[in-house]
Amino acid sequence: MNDHSQLNARTLPIVFPMILIFGFYVIVNGHVSPGGGFQGGAILASVFIAKYLGNPIKTLNLYKVQNIEKVLLLFLFVLMTGFVTLSIHMILHGSLIFYIILANILIGLKVACGFTIIFYRFVFYESR
């Protein structure tokens, strides 16, 4: 992929904000419409694939992305176990929307980081 086409490089940046907005829409509206964290995370990861098709960079620091993913998973553990085992859901009975939106956002960002790492790892290390 060293000789990428100019057509991709010029037209794909127009699509980036639309994919980003659609991904965040799917994640944040996961509790009222079809969608959720996993699906929106996959859509967000497709942004990086389109970015690679347009501008094939070789120097992305994957360890930073992996550390971000680990921190997001830690937050998810703290949120879920703390929120449900401390029985706050019994106090706030019937209004768990904030918990659900926050968990959806964390899962979506985590899944996006994970799929990005898988894709870039295949591109960097296996395509030689």
Partner: peptide, 18 residues
């Protein structure tokens, strides 16, 4: 009534089966 999310699948995988 219990979670406030009208999507029952989201309520399932984030509350009942978390």
């Amino acid at each position: 009534a219990e979670t406030g999310a009208s999507n029952a699948v989201t309520a399932t995988y984030l509350f009942y089966r978390y």
